[in-house]
């Protein structure tokens, strides 16, 4: 089929966008396979939304190029707009009118008759569990309902590529779970999804490949397992009863787990990468033998911040960059 002359849903090469002296996006490359969920992971201000805006024809790139199913985002804007659906970080629906009225307006704009637009709208509201709220104005909707309506609006034309910009930011855990199910459903029906998120967990749950983006650059790319491999699957967190014993504990951790613990001296807290949970038992026995008493023990999953720390050498938030660098120097041998 001539419409799909590329094997990639998205190809971006060296995308650049500058705002004044700030290079918000500074040479981003992406390759997204059709029929998959691709995660773009990064902190606030990393350039995720700007990247999506360029791919979705909302912003014109200052450098580089991008193609959606082989169509250029700058020269074939009108074609691109027929291929994509965009659900923004802030719900892009009309708050003053009702859910069904929103969908009718969008459907009419896409060339459906009033009747067909209404039928399609009712269908989508039903699918997104919004049928009861169809006639209520959107400004009376909860955050989760708004996001769902927003996503429903992006699906009227059944676009083959859907951009989801932080679809679950600010949602409670239950609503987030519902949103995840919806996204999985999209891919099952054959769509391609590009998803941005601040949560490693979310990218892990949904995306088959992930690009980690920081200060406008892609700093790592791969499957969720690839990325987690960089930081270890989880880390063990220990708090000692006696801070004097910190050094002895670090030595034991090194001997038993084979990893180097990070120390927070004030709180007598140790964090150690943990690759094999079996070994934790050995470590706990060793610590008891040495008379090192613990007041707290927990296992932490890798956080975005740790992925960042490992990949970029600074923390996920730009403001904390210096603090994280300091912390790194405190890592004892």
């Amino acid at each position: 089929m001539s419409d799909t002359k590329s094997e990639w849903a998205i190809e971006a090469d060296g995308l650049v966008k500058t705002f004044g002296s700030n290079r918000a996006v500074d040479g981003v490359d992406l390759r997204v396979k059709p029929g998959t969920v691709y995660g773009v992971l990064g902190p606030n201000g990393a350039g995720k939304t700007t990247t999506i805006s360029m791919l979705a024809t909302l912003l014109r790139p200052d450098g580089g190029s991008a193609r959606i199913f082989g169509h250029d985002v700058v020269h074939e804007q009108h074609v691109i707009r027929q291929l994509i659906g965009v659900t923004g970080q802030y719900a892009s629906v009309d708050e003053k009118i009702s859910g069904i009225e929103n969908l009718i307006v969008f459907g009419r704009l896409l060339g459906l008759s009033h009747k067909a637009a209404k039928r399609k709208g009712e269908e989508l509201l039903e699918a997104f569990d919004l049928a009861d709220a169809a006639k209520r104005p959107v400004d009376k909707y909860s955050g989760g309902m708004r996001r769902r309506l927003d996503l429903a609006s992006s699906l009227i034309a059944q676009p083959p590529l859907i951009f989801l910009d932080e679809p679950t930011t600010g949602l409670d855990p239950r609503t987030r779970g519902q949103m995840w199910d919806v996204i999985r459903g999209l891919v099952t029906s054959g769509s391609t999804v590009l998803l941005t998120t601040q949560y490693l967990d979310e990218a892990d749950q949904l995306a088959s490949r992930i690009a980690v983006i920081d200060r406008g650059h892609v700093v790592a790319e791969g499957t969720a397992d690839d990325l987690k491999g960089l930081v270890g699957t989880a880390s063990l967190l220990l708090r000692l009863a006696d801070p004097e014993q910190t050094e002895a504990a670090v030595t034991s951790i090194h001997q038993v787990l084979g990893s180097t613990a990070t120390v927070t001296p004030e709180a007598a807290r140790l964090t150690a990468p943990m690759s094999d949970p079996e070994r934790v038992t050995d470590l706990l026995i060793r610590l008891r033998e040495q008379g090192i008493r613990l007041t707290e023990m927990s296992v932490q999953k890798p956080t975005l911040d740790e992925v960042f720390l490992t990949i970029t050498g600074h923390g996920a938030s730009t403001d904390d960059a210096e603090a994280s660098d300091d912390a790194k120097e405190k890592v004892s041998a």
Binding site: M1, T4, G35, H71, Q158, P160
Partner: peptide, 20 residues
């Protein structure tokens, strides 16, 4: 051409370059 699973509507509709 490998079958890219385009949802139904776009498979049957020509992509257009302008608005009439």
């Amino acid at each position: 051409m490998t079958a890219i699973p385009l949802p139904a509507k776009l498979q049957s509709t020509e992509l257009r370059t302008h608005v009439s």
